[in-house]
Amino acid sequence: MHELSIAMSIVEIAEDYALRGNAGKVLEMDIEVGDMSGVVIDALEFALQEAVRNTRCEQATWKIIQVHPVARCPACGWEGAIDSPFTPCPDCGEYGLEIIRGKELQLKSLVVDT
């Protein structure tokens, strides 16, 4: 259940930016979560409901933008969307695909009140 740590980090970063931007409340949070980030989105959403309590984010809505993995094959240079990086390259059959997208775990932006 490391999603609770992640959720609390999101709230902490959001509060910090809201404070520095002289905002009162955080109204919306856009969060990017890659399929390969090691975070379960349902668990993160459940944790966020707890993490926002008694913070500037308490009334915030959130949007989770899921990022599907894209990989590159170091052997032949193939690049494309994949279901799992642990399968061989669809072009040359080598293992060891490099994930170039899909590991994102980022707070993208906030909407705050003025």
Binding site: I6, T61, I64, I65, S109, L110
Partner: peptide, 27 residues
């Protein structure tokens, strides 16, 4: 692709956007 969670569906008055783009595990 999108998971949204609404406590209050309407909050457009006086709202502004802050770009963050910070990695959540950065700390």
């Amino acid at each position: 692709h999108d998971h949204t969670h609404h406590h209050h569906p309407d909050h457009t008055h006086g709202a502004r956007e802050i770009v963050v783009e910070e990695n959540i595990l950065q700390k």
